[in-house]
Structure formats: structure tokens, C-alpha cells
Design a protein around this nucleic acid. Structure first.
Lengths: 332, 332
DNA sequence: TGAAATTAAGAAAACGATTAAGTAAATTTG
DNA sequence: CAAATTTACTTAATCGTTTTCTTAATTTCA
């Protein structure tokens, strides 16, 4: 690899001069600078990130903690869209992104150690188990950090407006004449709590009395689970006329399972998903589309800000989505 | 950040001794080594990757070039699954992965320069435009490299068995009584050429005479395009009885478009997808599932091998998938 | 017992960059 | 025209490791 030393030799100047010329410092004459740049180009020179990082203590690298509790990983449309837009924004801002894991050199370690090892300028946490002690340790460290869809007190966060989402869905269902609205919600996370808030708020506002049996704790992105819960709801004496599922994926999976069984009982009532994945549009599902793109971009903005202008101020941003009206909710 | 220097001071030994102790060299007494490890642990010490990389010229970091011509990026199920399994395998082998782009510090650059800058130990190319000059430049460099779904002479590759895929699909359609089989294939890439080979081979073997109008060049992952081409086929005087689409995604999109138009002409013939995405299973599509997981893992294996035991030998591996029999092909 | 071999540690250079401080020459200023 | 300032460099230290040589102490064995 050609280094500044060789360029310096080649140009008859010192390494310091080369460094300054290439990084555009002003105390170098135009002529020398041009010469150095030309020679560097000719020799195929490229800055060495490790050396620079060692000296400046800045890596221009952001660590991405992307853990999938449901082992779907990048195949999860919502999260992969967030990641994609984050990656794009990071690139624009001059940062690369590297996945964080808890292995170092093939040996088991911790997320925090991995971050120290790579010396990330900042970290973004997407789709993780926010109760994981290793994650708490990371959040408690002094690395600039942004969380997506989870609020901690000591870092910025960007979350999707789940309260509004459920509120709008319930209001929409109500506008279509539904009063018996069931909600299969996911595991009791922050996200879920907000959705429940939205659900109950909307019901209160609309004077819908909520049947206890209609609110069931299920799981996100788990077809088996959603299927079982849908069955439970359909077995009730006083069946709901509309069911809100944890997400589009589990809803579509459940629908297909019913179809396999040639059972049209689910088809005969109204269903609503969540996320707004592409397939939901294809099959005309009514759902709430989260603005994954904005979430990723805003998260990056916050993180870069925290890195470059540390202020100790944490911002918690809420990003609204929008309802997609399909044909899965009928007028009654 | 606590460094070896501080540990050395704390233990009353030299930095060299600390380095040797922590990296498990044998010329350190058990007692000293234990002491050093204990103190390092207590002080929250973690190795600095940049410093080590600078000295050893190894980063334990793999660059991933993941470009999406169709701007779906990580949301493309097939590629994101490959990436996910690659990432997992890399982690197991002690490598991190960082996305390659052609920006450095926010300024436009080239893929190769980015790799030099980050000094990746190796590079994997997934889902890229393999004719892109910047990619050719990268492939021609002396960085250990593996390509997925594309063969170059000067690097190893791991490709999905597209020939077999199409062969099996045609044979299956034939076994269901179809003779008029159309094939909307994607852009003329290596992948497509292999699929065409498989298609024509199977037709020859089965004595199916291929109607020229039945083989149409379309685009991957492009619903508009597939829709238009499906329309073309259905408008033929001598319509095909079965259409093989470029991929599941574009097929499902096309189906939904027909459904929107309340047009059942596509439903009345047989259709086949490609990829084996989850949604295809849900809706009972007949398709060919590529073994994305194996592709990713094998690619990682090849790359790690090329990095750690450079032999100058390039391997081209072909990974078979399997047919998923849904209900979208009828017996006639 | 004493020379050779082994063990355990340290000293120092190096990797490739950045940057504060210094210096000599050129230029400006009053 | 001498003093002050500016320009254009260079020197040298440093970031945190790794690694090659040394050296001193200890062990081995003839």
C-alpha cells in the first residue's frame, strides 16, 4: 500500500506537507498542493482509515445494532427499510456502517466491548430486545447513541407514532360501522404500550365499550401465534366484527392458513394489519403504514448531530405514519 | 480509553508484556499473564482495532458491496437473506461486515478507493450491476473477493443454480400437462442466461417446441414491466397455458393488478414464480426456492478461505434450490 | 561445577497518519 | 530599510499496538 511517506519522497517534501495538502489545509502553496495531489493520484494513494482513526480518535464509522428477536433479521421489511434509509443517510454524511455483534475475533464478548474495539463514533439500535442487559450496558456507556422505537432517558430516540396508528385504525373501523373491534397486540414492549394507549383512547373517544376478551396479547411476526389468537376470537360467543393484528405479516400468514383449511370464517369478518408492507398493498389490506424511511433518516440525523455537536441534549422524535385503506374492512 | 500503557503501568510491566499476555503468547509466565488479564478486565480495557490493524495490516473486517439496481435494497427478500446468512457466518469466523459505498467522507469516490481506505481483508459482492466499471475495477484489484450470482475469471463465486431451476419448473409444468409454456425473463445477465439455458434445454428434452412469442425479455422485480408482458402474452392469438415470471414479487404484483381490474384472465391460466419468498408460500404459488442461506454461508467460507489461506485458486460453486409445489399450476 | 539451553521479561522500532510548534525565507509595513 | 508579519514548510511527538532483538535469570546436564 502506498503511504504518505512515499508520496513525500516522490515530491521531495515532508510527510506533514503531504498530509496537509491532501486534507486541504491552507498553509500549503497552491503549486505544492497540486503537485502532491497529482502524484498521489498517479500512485493510487488512498488514506488509511486505521491510521487516521488512531490519531484522531474518530472512525467515521457508525455501529448498527440490529438484532432480531424473531430471527427474521434483515428479511423484516419494516426494519430493513429503516436500515436502508439510515445507511443512505449515513453515507451522505460521510459515515460507514458496520454491524455490531457480541463476538470479537470469533470469541464471545459483549456489544459494548465490540463498540470499544471498533471505536465507533456512534451507535444506532434497531429492532433489539431493549431489556437485554448487554444493550442496557451499551446505552449506559458514553458512546453517542440513538434508539429506534424505544425511549431511554439517556439517549435520543426516534419512534414511530404507534398511538396515533391504533387510534386512526380504530376510528376508521368505527367509521365503517364497527363497534366490536378486537386487538391482537404484540409482546408488552414500549411500542405495544403505545398501541394499546391509542386503542383504548380511541375507544373511549368513540364511546366504544371494550370487551375484555377482545384484547389479546400475542406476538409480533408470528403466524402460529396470530392464527391461534384469531381462532380464539372467532370462537367467542360474541364474536368481534373486526380484528386488528400485530402486523401485516402475521395477518397475511393467518389468512393464508385459513385459506388452506378452506375456512372462510376469517374472510367473513373485517381484518386490519400494521406496517404497510408491500404485500399488504397487493392484497388490498387495510393497514397503517409506518414511515420507515423517515425514521431511518431522522435517526441518522440525530446521531450525526450527537457525534458532531455534542450538547448533552436528547431528543425524542415521533414520526407519524398514515392509514392505507384497502378492502379488508367492510362497511356494516 | 484505557490502553495497554496504563495496564502496563498498573502492573509494573512493559507494554510488550501486556500485549503478549493479552494475545496469549507463550513467552509470558502464567502468573504475570493472569495478573495482567485480571487488571485489564478490571480497568475495562478493550483492544483498539485501528491500532492493531495499523500494525498487522489486518482489519478483520469484510466489505459488503450491496447495490440494488432496482432500488429495493435490503428489502429484497432473496438478497437480504443471503446477506443475513453471510453476516452470521462472518461473525462466527471473527469478521465484522461494513457496507461499501462510493463515498468517502461524504465526497464522491470509488468502490475500490473505499476498500483501500477501510483496508478490508476481503470483499463480497451481492446484487450489483456487474458491468459497472467501478465494480470491474474492484474485481481486478488484488483484494480477496467473492461474487454472488456472477462469475468472473479472477475471483471465486457462489451462484444459485438457475439452469436447474428453470429446468425443473418447465419439467414440472410439462408433467402437469402444459406444452405452451411462456417465460418472461429478466434483464440479460448471467443469471438470466442460465435460466434461459435451463428453459430451452428442458423444452428440447421434453420435445416441446418453443413459440418465439413465448419468450419475452422483461425486468426483475418490476411489477409494471411484468404486468405489461403478461398482458402481451394473454393477447396472443395462441395464448400460453402457463407463464413463468422473473420472480415471485413481480408475479404477485401482477396478479394483484389483475385482481384490481377484476380481470380473471391471468387466474385462468397457470403461473409460476421464482425465488420462493415467504409470501409465495402463503398464497400457494408454485415457485423455485433458491437456497439463499447456503449461498451466503458458502460465500463467506470461500472468502475467509481466500483471506486466510491465499492459494490463487478460484472456486466457482453452484448451489441448487428446490421446487415448491403450490397450487398455481393446474393439471390440464 | 560450569557451559549450554531455556524462560521471562524489556527496549525499541514500526505501522500511517495528524498536528503543535518551530524556522527560514519572502513579503509587507511604517 | 529595518522591523514586523506572513507564507510555506519541516521537525518531532504521538495515537495503541505488534514484534524482533536483547538481556538477565534460571534450569539442565555432562
Amino acid at each position: 500500500m502506498v503511504s504518505m511517506k512515499e508520496i513525500a519522497r516522490n515530491c521531495g517534501v515532508s510527510v506533514a506537507t503531504v498530509s496537509k495538502a491532501l486534507s486541504g489545509k491552507k498553509d500549503i502553496s497552491k503549486a505544492t498542493s497540486d503537485k502532491i495531489r497529482k502524484v498521489a493520484e498517479e500512485m493510487g494513494y488512498m488514506l488509511n482509515a486505521s491510521a487516521r482513526a488512531l490519531k484522531t480518535n474518530r472512525t467515521n464509522n457508525i455501529g448498527v445494532l440490529f438484532v432480531d428477536n424473531m430471527s427474521v433479521g434483515l428479511a423484516h421489511e419494516y426494519f430493513s427499510e429503516i436500515l436502508e434509509s439510515f445507511r443512505w443517510a449515513a453515507e451522505e454524511n460521510g459515515y460507514d456502517i458496520t454491524f455490531i455483534n457480541n463476538h470479537i475475533g470469533g470469541m464471545s464478548s459483549t456489544y459494548l466491548n465490540h463498540c470499544k474495539y471498533r471505536n465507533f463514533d456512534g451507535v444506532v439500535i434497531i429492532s433489539a430486545d431493549f431489556k437485554d442487559p448487554q444493550i442496557l450496558e451499551l446505552v449506559d456507556s458514553d458512546i453517542p447513541l440513538v434508539c429506534i422505537d424505544y425511549n431511554y432517558d439517556n439517549c435520543s430516540s426516534v419512534v414511530s407514532d404507534n398511538t396515533k396508528g391504533l387510534k386512526q385504525l380504530v376510528k376508521y373501523a368505527h367509521s365503517m360501522g364497527h363497534e366490536k373491534i378486537a386487538f391482537i397486540h404484540g409482546e408488552m414492549t414500549d411500542v405495544t404500550k403505545n398501541r394499546l394507549n391509542g386503542f383504548f383512547n380511541a375507544c373511549r373517544e368513540l364511546d366504544i365499550k371494550v370487551n375484555d376478551d377482545y384484547v389479546i396479547e400475542g406476538k409480533y411476526h408470528d403466524i402460529d401465534d396470530s392464527y391461534v389468537n384469531a381462532r380464539k376470537l372467532l370462537a367467542l360467543e360474541d364474536k368481534p366484527t373486526c380484528i386488528i393484528f400485530p402486523d401485516d405479516y402475521s395477518l397475511i400468514g393467518t389468512m393464508s392458513r385459513f385459506a388452506d383449511e378452506k375456512d372462510d370464517s376469517l374472510q367473513n369478518i373485517s381484518v386490519i394489519g400494521y406496517d404497510g408492507i408491500k404485500m399488504a398493498r397487493f392484497i388490498g389490506l387495510t393497514t397503517y403504514q409506518q414511515d420507515a424511511k423517515s425514521l431511518g433518516m431522522l435517526a441518522c440525523k440525530r446521531l450525526v448531530d450527537a457525534i458532531e455537536n455534542p450538547s448533552g441534549i436528547y431528543e425524542h422524535s415521533i414520526v407519524a405514519g398514515h392509514l392505507i385503506e384497502g378492502s379488508s374492512v367492510r362497511k356494516i
